[in-house]
Amino acid sequence: MSEEKPVKKTSLASLFLAFAKIGVMTFGGGYAMLPMLEREVVDNHGWTTSEQMMDYYAVGQCTPGVIAVNVSTFVGFNERGVIGAIAAMLGVVFPSLVIIMSLASVLMVFRENVYVARAFAGIRIAVCALILSAVIKLAKKAISNIPTAVIAVLAFLLQVFLGISPVIIVLTTAAGGIAVYFIKKGKKPEEGGEEEK
């Protein structure tokens, strides 16, 4: 990466640093990052507006991958094109790389320690609770009628009983969604996108 060149208005280094700062200061992804992103990207640097940021978030949720990467790519791209997108994205991941790898190597050494082992046995319970609470939170937003509930249950049961891979389930559901859209459109125009959020 050739940073340090303050060409035009935004340097690659400042993109990298701003997003590295966001990476260091947020715990958990998704919406947990929004306040930090706003402060850094909108308030401190003025790279984008709050409204634009919400659009990025919306797209981030409608495209695969980590939302922080989507947002950083948008902002970096708008400032400096593809190379800016890459600089911003590397900024997001840099802190994770450093912190996780140092922590992981420490943990590898202490894995056999009885207190560490006990602590992790306890932590596994919290992880279960965290995953379950993520499910509940998502379900409140996404399960609104019988078809959506059936899809959720079906996705679960297909894995439990038939061991179908999540990739297949995502692909089939997406294909099903496209099919439903075109069938509805064929029957009655104007009925494609209902009021549902």
Binding site: A149, A155, P166, V170, G192
Partner: peptide, 14 residues
């Protein structure tokens, strides 16, 4: 439409 169906599927996955 796709995401309206994809979101519940993701819940099943998690």
């Amino acid at each position: 439409t796709v995401f309206r169906y994809l979101r519940p599927a993701v819940i099943g996955l998690i």
